[in-house]
């Protein structure tokens, strides 16, 4: 089953080949340099948890006011990828960054969500909670998919497989920022977010549209 999905997905990625090229040029330096040296640890001791704490520091300072779109655009630039998409677990496209003209993002979101949910079930079957990262390696293009908060997924499409380490690192970093942004959005109350949305009027218009679209004439 998953095999078929992979084939289809890669077809989607190639089908919409456009003239536009992904950003090329040297990849920016890895973020490890931002770990404070003054802590007096050897390079070897710069462990995962330190990396994480340095990321959290950065988050607090700059990333909190940003929109998902900016985070995705920055992610694409920082790892030389083509495209980054943020989708919900049930297949809605939330935001996108980089080049998107060459792919059908709606279809992509629905497919990846299906793929990821299938993989989650597979994980359960082998006794894992879930696989947190999915990597699809193609001939020319590759897809890195990671979970954000368990309710969303971050998709990165890239071409240079040599950069997989960088993609993984930047995707994790962006994932933390996005998780924070999503968490904040869910914390806000609904009337606060949509003061203009009046239910009775909304429903009346929506029903009217539905009647026009589906009613036999």
């Amino acid at each position: 089953m998953t095999l078929v999905m992979q084939v289809r997905l890669s077809r989607y990625l190639r089908l919409y080949d456009s003239a536009s090229k992904p950003p090329t040029g040297p990849a920016p330096a890895p973020v490890l340099t931002k770990v404070r040296k003054s802590w007096g640890m050897s390079a070897l001791a710069i462990s995962k948890h330190m990396l994480r704490s340095s990321i959290t520091n950065e988050l607090n300072e700059t990333d909190q006011k940003r929109q998902p779109k900016e985070v995705l655009s920055d992610l694409v630039v920082s790892c030389g990828a083509m495209t980054a998409l943020l989708i919900t677990r049930d297949g809605h496209l939330m935001s996108e960054g980089g080049e998107t003209g060459y792919l059908d993002t709606t279809a992509m979101a629905a497919l990846v969500a299906g793929m990821f949910s299938a993989t989650r079930e597979v994980a359960r079957i082998v006794g894992e909670q879930q696989f947190s990262i999915l990597l699809q390696q193609g001939e020319k293009r590759h897809i890195h998919i990671s979970l954000v908060l368990g309710s969303a997924m971050l998709i990165v499409v890239f071409e240079d497989y040599q950069r997989i380490g960088l993609v993984r690192h930047q995707a994790r970093k962006a994932g933390l920022t996005l998780a924070e942004l999503l968490r904040k959005e869910t914390e806000m109350t609904k009337p606060e977010l949509a003061p203009e949305l009046s239910m009775p009027a909304f429903k009346e218009y929506a029903l009217d549209l539905i009647d026009r679209i589906f009613k036999p004439n």
């Binding site: 089953m1 078929v4 299906g114 009027a201 909304f202």
Partner: peptide
């Protein structure tokens, strides 16, 4: 409507799902 996706077995049975998005329009800005 957007494109329709079908994930079929070789004999046209649905393997995973069919899907298409339908946009009915913009209401109150949404």
């Amino acid at each position: 409507r957007g494109d329709m996706l079908t994930l079929n077995t070789s004999d046209e049975r649905t393997l995973f799902f069919d899907f298409f998005p339908l946009d009915i329009g913009r209401i109150e800005g949404y």
